[in-house]
C-alpha cells in the first residue's frame, strides 16, 4: 500500500500551480454568465412564416384580442408541451413531421340530438374564421401571446343540439403511436382527454382553433383542430381532437388523473393557488428580454371580466 502522509495527503494530490490558478478561472467564468446575459438582447421578433403552411384568407379581427405584442411564430411553434410527441418542449417541433392531419374526422357523441362522425370540412364549413390574439399561460409558469385562428366553440356545439342532460363536454386526442412517438411509452394514459362544463364551453372566449399567425396549425401545435380556453392553464386546451362527447357527469381528464393533488378539473389560471411544487403568482413571458423579471400572473389569466361569473359560489382554492 502506498505510504501516506500523516494528514492523509499523498504528494501527488498537491495541486500544480497552473491548475490552482485555472480553478480560479472557473469560478470567475461562473460570474461571467450573468454579465454575458446582460449583453443578450431580446430575441428577434420579426419572423418569416415558412411557405409550406397554407394561408387562411379572409380572417375577421376579434374584439376579444388582447393588445399585447404576440410572440414570434418561431417561439410559438418550437416551444410547447405536446407529450404525444415527447416530453421536452422542443420535442413536438422535432417529432411532429410524420403526423398526418389530413384526412381528418371528428366523432360527435353523447347527450345531443345530432351525433355521428363528421369530416373536418363538415365541421369547419359554416364557421367564418377569425383571428384572436390571446394570452397563453402554461401551468409550468411560462406564458406567450398567440394570434390563434379559429371560431367560437359554442357555435360548433350548438349545431349538434345538446339535450337538457348535457352538462359537460369531453374531448379526446387522436391515438396514432406510429406517427406520435410519445404515445409509444406510457407517460400518460392515452388517449389524452379533457373536458369543460357546458357553460365554460359556450363562453364566447372558448375557441376551436385551426390556425396561428394566419396560417393553418403546424402539427406540433395540435393540427388540424384544437381547443383554446385562454383563462385556463394550457393543458386544458386539448390538441388534435377526434372526439367530442356531451355528458351529464364531469368527465375524467388526463392530468387530474395522473396527479390529482397537482392538477384539477377546472385548472383556471389563479395566482393565489400555487402548484404544490411551485408558485403560480408570476410567469415568465417567453421572448421577453433576457433579464426581464417575471411578470405577475392575472386571475383567470386576465379574462376575469368575461368568465369569473361562471364560478360564482365555487371555492376556487379547492376546485383548482
Amino acid at each position: 500500500m502506498r505510504q501516506r502522509h500523516p494528514d492523509g495527503i499523498t504528494p501527488s494530490e498537491i495541486t500544480p500551480e497552473a491548475v490552482f490558478h485555472a480553478r480560479r478561472d472557473v469560478l470567475r467564468a461562473a460570474g461571467f454568465v450573468g454579465a454575458a446575459a446582460l449583453l443578450a438582447s431580446a430575441r428577434a421578433g420579426a419572423e418569416d412564416i415558412p411557405t409550406r403552411y397554407r394561408r387562411l384568407p379572409g380572417l375577421k379581427k376579434s374584439p376579444y384580442s388582447v393588445k399585447e405584442t404576440p410572440n414570434s411564430f418561431e417561439d410559438i411553434t418550437s416551444y410547447n408541451n405536446f407529450y404525444e410527441f415527447g416530453l421536452d418542449k422542443t420535442d413536438p417541433a422535432e417529432n411532429a413531421g410524420r403526423f398526418r392531419p389530413k384526412p381528418w374526422s371528428v366523432s360527435i357523441e353523447g347527450e345531443a340530438e345530432v351525433t355521428g362522425r363528421f369530416t373536418l370540412e363538415d365541421i369547419l364549413k359554416p364557421h367564418p374564421l377569425e383571428e384572436r390574439i390571446y394570452r397563453f399561460r402554461c401551468v409550468e409558469a411560462w406564458s406567450m401571446v398567440i394570434p390563434w385562428v379559429g371560431f367560437p366553440l359554442g357555435d360548433l356545439l350548438k349545431r349538434f343540439k345538446p339535450t337538457s342532460k348535457a352538462k359537460y363536454v369531453a374531448f379526446e386526442t387522436i391515438v396514432r403511436p406510429e406517427e406520435m412517438p410519445g404515445q409509444k411509452g406510457r407517460t400518460l394514459d392515452w388517449p389524452y382527454i379533457e373536458g369543460l362544463t357546458l357553460a365554460e364551453a359556450m363562453n364566447p372566449l372558448s375557441l376551436m382553433v385551426v390556425g396561428v399567425y394566419g396560417v393553418e396549425l403546424p402539427n406540433q401545435n395540435g393540427a388540424p383542430l384544437r381547443l383554446i380556453v385562454p383563462w385556463k392553464y394550457g393543458f386544458k386546451s386539448i390538441k388534435s381532437i377526434v372526439r367530442i362527447r356531451f355528458t351529464d357527469k364531469q368527465p375524467r381528464t388526463t392530468w387530474s388523473e395522473a396527479a390529482p393533488d397537482e392538477y384539477g378539473f377546472y385548472a383556471n389560471v389563479n395566482p393565489e393557488v400555487d402548484h404544490p411544487r411551485w408558485s403560480q403568482a408570476t410567469e415568465r413571458r417567453i421572448g421577453s428580454a433576457f433579464l426581464a423579471p417575471k411578470q405577475r400572473t392575472l386571475p383567470f389569466n386576465g379574462y376575469g371580466a368575461q368568465v369569473a361569473a361562471l364560478y360564482k359560489g365555487l371555492d376556487l382554492t379547492r376546485n383548482y
Binding site: A29, F32, V33, A36, A37, L39, A40, S41, R43, E74, D75, S78, Y79, K89, T90, W142, R284, I286, G287, F290
Partner: peptide
C-alpha cells in the same frame, strides 16, 4: 456563455433562462 452572449451560433432556445 456563448448562447447567453449570442455568439458562435449557439442558441439557448426559446426559454434561455430555463
Amino acid at each position: 456563455v456563448a448562447g447567453a452572449a449570442g455568439v458562435g451560433g449557439v442558441d439557448l432556445g426559446v426559454n434561455p433562462v430555463e
